[in-house]
Simulated scan of single mutants.
Amino acid sequence: MGANWYRRMRHFNIWVVAIFGIAAIIGVIAIVATLASGFQQRLGPVEGQRPVDENASIAPRFSGAERIAGRPFLAMTVVAKNAADTGGSGYSSKSAIDNRNMLLLNVVDGSSRYILPDNGRRLVQWHVLSLAAGDEALAYVALVGDDAAASYDVLIGSFATGRQAWVARGVTAMDEPMMVDADTMGLILWDGQRPAYHRYGMADLKETLSRPLPLLGEAAQ
């Protein structure tokens, strides 16, 4: 009787150990699969984003990052692979850096968005604007274009609403972007040799003022 009971208990213990062992193996496999899945999701393409330009001469890479003051965003610069001074006559001839895009990464939830739909043109200027140095960032402005044609477009965006809009096309230069107040952005745009001061409301990203600036000879008349 005692021997039979001992054998039954030994067989029972073997089955218990085997069951727990199998459960542990399954648990480890599930954890590894979950981590691998999350890693792949973080490295996946941005949903709805057009493919990067396949031209090998402007294959993109990241170069530098800037934390946006008072916001959960990191602004990561995308540059062309061959970022080099081409010696042209436009903005890019002043620098060997060939910026193509900007990725805004939310460091809290991991979401991200490129400000431009592709890397086909140069990101000539990028400004993060606040009312004063060190204050919470309110908006951003980008000058994007083609040096060969000396023609650029202006993109503005609001950190508060997450919206952005093209507000000017075919300008030849942009100067002095600023926040006039918490709800208004101001900047100077050039059309050839003609400068004008423009203001935009940040609530709807619409122009609220456009006033030509006289040149010195014109003002003296």
Rank of each mutant, 00 (worst) to 15 (best):
Arg50Ile: 03
Ala24Gln: 08
Asp135Cys: 08
Tyr91Ile: 15
Val180Lys: 11
Gly87Asp: 11
Gly2Pro: 07
Gly48Arg: 00
Ser151Val: 01
Ala59Lys: 14
Asn82Lys: 13
Lys94Ser: 11
Val17Leu: 14
Ala196Arg: 15
Arg71Thr: 01
Ser151Trp: 06
Ala149Gln: 15
Ala59Thr: 05
Ile188Tyr: 11
Val17Gly: 04
Arg169Ala: 00
Gln221Ile: 09
Leu105Glu: 06
Leu143Gly: 00
Glu54Arg: 02
Tyr114Phe: 15
Gly145Tyr: 07
Met185Arg: 01
Ala149Phe: 08
Pro212Gln: 01
Val78Gln: 07
Ile31Trp: 10
Ala219His: 10
Val46Tyr: 05
Asp98Met: 09
Val154Tyr: 06
Gly64Tyr: 02
Trp190Leu: 03
Trp15Ile: 15
Met202Gly: 02
Leu116Gln: 04
Gln49Phe: 03
Asp118Gln: 04
Pro177Ala: 08
Thr77Trp: 02
Leu205Trp: 05
Ile68Thr: 06
Gly70Lys: 10
Ile188Met: 13
Tyr6Trp: 07
Arg42Met: 14
Ala149Leu: 15
Thr34Ile: 11
Gly145Pro: 00
Leu189Ser: 04
Glu218Ile: 03
Gln41Arg: 11
Asp147Tyr: 10
Ala80His: 05
Pro60Met: 14
Leu74Asp: 05
Ile29Glu: 09
Ser57Tyr: 13
Ile156Leu: 13
Ala69Trp: 00
Val78Ile: 11
Ser151Gln: 15
Asp85Gln: 14
Thr86Phe: 12
Met178Tyr: 11
Ile188Pro: 02
Ser89Leu: 14
Val16Phe: 12
Asp181Leu: 03
Ile156Pro: 02
Met178Gln: 12
Leu187Asn: 03
Asp85Cys: 12
Leu105Lys: 01
Asn13Tyr: 12
Ala220Asn: 12
Lys94Asn: 07
Ala168Glu: 12
Ala132His: 07
Thr161Gln: 06
Trp190Lys: 09
Arg122Phe: 11
Val79Ile: 15
His127Ser: 14
Thr184Met: 07
Pro51Gln: 02
Ile68Arg: 03
Asn82Thr: 14
Arg10Asn: 13
Ala165Ser: 14
Phe73Gln: 13
Thr172Asn: 08
Glu54His: 08
Ala96Glu: 10
Met1Glu: 09
Tyr6Glu: 15
Asp98Ser: 06
Leu155Tyr: 04
Gly170Gln: 04
Arg8Leu: 13
Ala56Arg: 01
Asp183Thr: 01
Tyr114Thr: 09
Asp85Met: 10
Arg169Phe: 13
Leu35Pro: 00
Val154Thr: 02
Ala65Met: 11
Pro45Asp: 13
Gly120Ile: 06
Val79His: 03
Gly217Val: 05
Ile156Lys: 01
Met102Ile: 11
Ala80Met: 05
Tyr197His: 14
Ala182Pro: 02
Ala137Met: 02
Lys94Ala: 07
Glu47Tyr: 01
Ile22Lys: 01
Thr208Gly: 06
Gly157Cys: 08
Arg113His: 09
Ser37Cys: 05
Ser57Arg: 08
Gly27Lys: 05
Met76Asn: 04
Tyr200His: 02
Val144Ile: 15
Leu105Met: 10
Pro60Phe: 12
Ala168Ile: 00
Ala30Tyr: 08
Ser37Val: 06
Arg169Trp: 13
Ala75Cys: 04
Val78Cys: 01
Gln40Glu: 14
Arg71Val: 02
Gln41Cys: 06
Ala96Gly: 07
Arg67Cys: 05
Asn55Ile: 05
